[in-house]
Amino acid sequence: MNTEAVIVTDKLTKRFGPFIACNELTFQVDKGEIFGFLGANGAGKTTAMRMLCGLLNPSSGKATVAGFDVYTQANRIKQRIGYMSQRFSLYDDLTVSENIRFFGGIYGMSISDIKKKTSALLSELQLEKEAKTLVRDIPPGWKQKLAFSVSIVHGPDIVFLDEPTGGVDPVTRRQFWDLIYEAADKGVTVFVTTHYMDEAEYCNRVSIMVDGVIADLDAPARLKTKYQVSSMEEVFYALARNAVRKAD
C-alpha cells in the first residue's frame, strides 16, 4: 500500500465564540485508506468534516485535502471529493439515471462521460432494468448502494460518508462494504464518520474524538489490544465515558 497522504491536518482548530468545537486536530489520511472518524454526540465530528469539505473556515491551524488548502482552495477541494450521508443522498422524485446525470453534471462531467459511467454503474449494481425507475420506488438497500456509487461517479480522490449504513439489513450492508473496499482498492480514500462501532471495525484506521480533541487514533485491532477489550464499542466506551460535552 502506498503512503501518499491525501488529508493532512496540523493543529486544525475551530472556535465558535468561546466554545472550541475542534481543538488542534492533527492527523493524516493516506490514499486508498478507509478512515473511520468516530466520536460521541457533540464531540466535534461534524465540524471537523465540514472544515475538510471546505464548507467551514477553520479558526487556526493548517489542513490540506487532496493537496489543496482548506482556507484558499475550497472550490478546488469540492471538485475532488464526493459526499454521501444517510439522511440525504439521492433525489427521491428523480429516476435512477436522472440522479446519476444530475450528480455527474454538477461535478462538470461531459455528457458522453456521464453516459458511459451510467451504464457501467448500472450493470455493476445490476440495476439496468431500474434505470427509469424513480428512486423512491427502489428498495432501501439498493438506494444506499446506488447513493455510494453516485457519490464517486466523478472519480473523486476522497469520499466522505456520514453514517452510511444505519438501518440497512445485514446482507445489504455487506454488499455496501464490498463497494467501499472496491473503491478503496482503486485508490479512493474513504472517510467515514459514524457513531456505530460495528462500522468502525471495517476501517483500516479509526480516530475517536472526545470533547473536541482526538482521544486516540490507530487500527481497530491495535486499539483493542491497547485497551485490552474485545470490541471497538468497549474502546469507545473507555474513551468517551467521561466526556464533558454532551450537547449536539
Binding site: G39, G167, H195
Partner: peptide, 10 residues
C-alpha cells in the same frame, strides 16, 4: 437507540 452514541446507548 437510533442516532444515539455508544455511551448513551449503554
Amino acid at each position: 437507540t437510533t442516532g444515539v452514541d455508544v455511551v448513551s446507548r449503554k
